[in-house]
Each structure stands twice: as C-alpha cells, then as structure tokens.
Simulated scan of single mutants.
Amino acid sequence: MTPGELALTSGNHTPVTKFILLGFSNYPDLQELLFGGFLLIYAITVVGNLGMIALIFLDTRLHSPMYFFLSVLSFLDVCYSSVITPKLLLNLLASDKSISFNGCVVQMTFFVMHATAESFLLASMAYDRFMAICQPLHYGSIMTKGTCLQLVAVSYAFGGANTAIETGNVFALPFCGPNKITHYFCDIQPLLQLACANTATAGVVLYVFSALVTLLPAAVILTSYSLVLVAIGKMRSAAGQKKALSTCASHFLAIAIFYGTVVFTYVQPHRSTNNTNSQLVSIFYTIIIPMLNPFIYSLRNKEVKGALKRKLQINIFPC
C-alpha cells in the first residue's frame, strides 16, 4: 500500500497528491536576489567539490586514506546539495512552487541518506586521524584500502537504514488536509505538522533516531580527538605538534559547523517552532557547508595547495 492509498483509508478526506514549498515566499521583493545568491553558492559547491575529487584522483601524492575520505565527503556534499538546491532555485522564480507527493518522498529519502552518511563519514575521518597520530606504527596495516572502503560502506549502510526509518515514519502518516510546507524542501518536521493524525509517536521516533545518528558519530569524534590532543601534547617536537594540529584543525572546524546546525535543528529537546529560524539554520547544513568544505580542507592544507599548484603549472606550462 502506497502512502497515498494509506491516506485514503484513514478517512473521507482526499489524500494530498502534491505539496507547496513556501520557502522564502514571505520575501517577494528578494526572490531574484536570493536566486542569484543561491545559484552562485551552488555553482561554487559543485565546482569546488568536483574539483577536489578530481585533484585527489589525479595527484598520486594524495592517494592516502585521509584524502580518500575527503573525496567521498566532497561527493556526499555534491549529492545532498543537489537534492535540494535545484528545486529551491526553480521555486524562487516559478509561480508554481509545488512538488509531487512522490517527489517529496524521493527528496527526503536522498537528503536523509546522504546527510546521515556524511555524519558517519566524519566519524571515520576522525578515526583515521586518531590512527595516524596515536598509532603511527600500525597505521599502514590497519587503514588499508579495504578498511577505508568498508568504513564508507558502513556510512552508507547507516544512511540507508536511517532514511528507511525516518521516511517511512513520516509517510506512513495520512496527509489529507493542508499541503503547504513552511520550508524550502521536504524536511521531516514541517511535514509532520501537516499530517492528519497524532504525530506524537512519529516525533519521538524522529528525536531518537536523529539523536542516534548525530550523537553516536559525535561521541566517536570527540573520543578520537581527545586522544589525539593528548598525543600531540606529548610530542617533543614543536614542528610535529604544529603539523598534527594543522591536519586536524580543518576537520574539526567542519565538524563543529555541521553538528552544531544539525543538533540545533533535530536533536534539541525543545525545538523552536519559529519557521524562519529553522530555515535559516537549515541553509547552513544544506547549502553553505557543502560549499565551505572544499575551502576549509584546502586553504589549511599544504598538501592540497601543493597538488593544486602542481596541476596548474602543468596545465599552464605543459613544457
């Protein structure tokens, strides 16, 4: 039974066949300006992340676990940004801001899957830094290509499991009344507000699983970096300390921004009902962070900057 058929059996109301994404419709005079700004951000996101993937693939000096994970992170950023931003751009200019019921299901499915996978991938990256700094003698034998692929596969497995639970949790509910979503994409909380049923249980499921997929990786990250900081503090070489801190600083900055906004949106016990604030916070982890990640990791990383310089020199001065 499809979600729409389930809604039909729940009462005499006509099931919702499409939703209206209100997004930033409260600012009619700013639609063109917002379109230009988001289009520029999306272009930078795609070019920056695909460029990072290409650079890591082409430069053999970057063929290490840390940069493999970074290339996967760039791929995830392109994916979940592309799930949301193109539809947002279209709605900023079009008078019809609707999305079909099935389209909403697909958008939520792929967004939750990639966002969850990124959360666990960040934990894998923290574990990689822990092994590199705290267990350098065993690093090569443990962080093999097979291990890295398994960690990525596990990240996607958690993403698939969480999206099945979260999406099923929402669309198992009947939608037979209002269809205007006070958001710019099919997010879980705004949709729960439209359901024609008691959403208390669904709200608990959302809170529990959002906490699990956020706080569990966060615990791994905090533990890994706590041990890393202890190991760095024991280093006798100031140069070694600086290099170790440099490789971890960009990762920790990206983590702080990502988890800070996600926790504010999904995991806080008493979530704000202010839709404007929710949209503004969501912009950070759905649109801004995917754009910033390539710059955060490259501007503070001498190896990435060196690889980019080498490729530019080869292309500009091939002889």
Rank of each mutant, 00 (worst) to 15 (best):
M1T: 00
T2K: 03
S10T: 08
P15L: 01
L21R: 02
L34N: 09
A43S: 12
T45V: 07
L50S: 07
G51A: 03
M52V: 09
L55C: 06
I56T: 02
L58Q: 10
L58Y: 11
S71D: 12
Y80S: 09
S81V: 06
K87R: 14
L89V: 11
L90G: 04
L90I: 08
A94K: 04
S100R: 15
V106C: 10
L122I: 02
S124D: 06
R129W: 01
Y139S: 09
Y139F: 14
G140F: 08
M143R: 11
T147P: 06
L149Y: 08
V152T: 12
A164V: 06
I165D: 05
L173W: 10
T182M: 09
I188Q: 11
F209I: 02
A211V: 03
V213E: 11
T214Y: 08
V230A: 03
A231I: 00
A239W: 11
L253H: 02
I257Y: 15
I257L: 15
T261G: 09
T261A: 12
V262G: 02
P269G: 00
N277H: 14
P290L: 13
L292Y: 03
N293I: 10
F295I: 03
R300K: 09
N301K: 07
N301L: 04
K302V: 03
K305V: 02
I314F: 13
I316Q: 15
